[in-house]
Design a protein around this nucleic acid. Structure first.
Lengths: 222, 222
DNA sequence: TGAATAGTGTCTTTCAGACAATATGCC
DNA sequence: GGCATATTGTCTGAAAGACACTATTCA
C-alpha cells in the first residue's frame, strides 16, 4: 500500500517546551531569539533533542532544567505537531511539552539559567518562528482549562503563599476578576491547602496567613 | 551539551490508532493478532506510517479509513509514547490517535474493512503487545472524561438515533446506570439535539422519536 | 489615625440527584 | 388487553454567584 519512499519511518524529531511563568502580574512564556535562518530575528520556543536512553518525559525535564536551572517543575506533554509544511527545512516532528516555573516569594519568576532566554507576556506576543505561535495558543488553552479543575496553579507558586497570590494566579490566567469571598469559600471546600502558623508582612497593613498545598502531586477535582 | 551519538535526531516514528466502537452493549477496541516476533500471538493495535506529504491528522485518518472503510470518523491525537524500553526492537516513538466508529441503526458496529481486525471488549481485554495496553487504558480514560463535557458520543452513533441509544452510550462508557429523567433533562437543557419528525419502531411497543445533533462538529459544554 | 490589604456570611439562583406514573404502538 | 418501551415533573440538597463590612498591622 505505502511506497517506502513516501513513508516517513525516519523523521527528524525534536522537542519544544512552552515554559510559563507569572511576572509583573502577567502570564509570560519563555522564548529565545533566532540568530540563523529560517526565521532569523524571530523569537522561537526553546527546544532540544531526545537521547536514546531517556523517555520523552525525561528529555523535557532535562531541557527545562538546562533552561531554567530548576529540575523539579511541573510539566506535561502538550501535543505532537507534524504538519509537513510546518518547517521548510525538512520534515520534522515536534513533541511539545508545557511547563510551569514558580514565582519566588517576591512575585518575580524563579532564576533562569540561559541568558539568551527572555520571558514575554502572552498578551502582545509577536508572531513566533515556525508554528510556535500555535503551540503557545494551544498551551494557553490547556492551562486555562486545567486550572479550573486541578491544582496545576501550584506549579506557578512558591511553596508557601498567600491566598491572595493564589487568587491572582487564577485571575491572570483566566483573564477575569474573581470574587474574593467566593474564591476562598471554594478553595476551603476543596480541603487541599494547609494554613501555616506563619504570617507574611508585605507592607504597612494586616499580614496574611501563609498556606501550602497538602500534597505536591497534582490533584484533579473534576 | 548533547553528544550527537546520544541524541535521537532520527527516531523511528509510527502511528497507532485506538478505534473504539460499541457492539453488543459493550465498548470494544479494534486489534489485530501479531504473526511475527516480538509478541507473536499477542494482539496489538493497528498502526501505520506517516507519509512525508501528510499531516499526523491525515495519516491517522488514512490509517483508520484503510482499517474500517470509514473516512469520516471522529478522531483526535491521544498521546505520544517514547520510552526507550517500550520496544525491544529499536527506538520507536509512537504517536497514538483514538477514534470512534459509529454503530449502524441496528446497534452493531459499522463495516470493517480489514478481515484481520477484531473488536474486543474493553472489559476482559488480554494483555496487548508492547505498551499497547497502557495506550488503551489512556484512551479509555480520555473517552470517559470527554464524554462528560462534550458531544463526543456523537462519534459512536448513527446520524439519527433514539434518546435511549444515546443514554446507553453514556452508561456503557461510564460503566454505570443513569436515571432516564435526569439524563433527558440534562440533554434537553444543552439544546444540542434536534427532534426529527420520524419515529423508529423496533418492537411491539411505543415507537421512539429520532433525534440528530444540530451540528456535526464536536461541542464542548464545560 | 490613615492607608492598605486580610478576612469573613447571607441570600438567591442554578444544577444534580432521587424518585414513579402515564402514554403509545404492536401483537 | 397485554407487553414493552417512550415520555414526563417534583422535591431536595449542594454548589455557584452576587454582594459589603470589619480586622489588623505599620508608618
Amino acid at each position: 500500500m505505502i511506497k517506502t519512499s513516501e513513508a516517513l519511518h525516519q523523521a527528524g524529531i525534536t522537542l519544544r517546551v512552552i515554559v510559563f511563568t507569572i511576572e509583573d502580574e502577567q502570564l509570560k512564556v519563555i522564548v529565545t531569539k533566532r540568530t540563523t535562518d529560517p526565521f532569523k530575528g524571530f523569537y522561537n520556543l526553546p527546544g532540544g533533542f531526545i537521547r536514546k536512553t531517556e523517555s520523552l518525559e525525561q528529555a523535557s525535564m532535562r531541557t527545562i532544567a538546562e533552561l531554567t536551572g530548576e529540575s523539579d517543575v511541573y510539566s506535561e506533554q502538550l501535543y505532537t505537531f507534524g504538519d509537513p509544511d510546518r518547517d521548510s527545512n525538512g520534515w520534522w516532528i515536534t513533541v511539545a511539552y508545557f511547563a510551569l516555573l514558580p514565582q519566588d516569594k517576591n512575585g518575580t519568576a524563579a532564576y533562569r539559567n540561559d541568558p539568551a532566554c527572555i520571558a514575554l507576556p502572552i498578551e502582545k506576543l509577536p508572531k513566533l518562528a515556525f508554528d510556535h505561535s500555535s503551540m503557545v495558543e494551544y498551551a494557553v488553552a490547556r492551562l486555562q482549562a486545567k486550572i479550573q479543575y486541578s491544582t496545576i496553579a501550584q506549579g506557578l507558586l512558591p511553596e508557601k503563599f498567600r491566598l491572595t497570590s493564589l487568587q491572582r494566579i487564577y485571575e491572570i490566567i483566566l483573564a477575569k476578576k474573581l470574587d474574593k469571598r467566593n474564591f476562598r469559600k471554594k478553595i476551603a471546600s476543596l480541603k487541599l491547602l494547609e494554613a501555616l502558623n506563619e504570617k507574611e508582612i508585605v507592607g504597612r497593613h494586616r499580614p496574611a496567613t501563609l498556606y501550602k498545598f497538602k500534597t505536591k502531586e497534582q490533584v484533579i477535582f473534576g
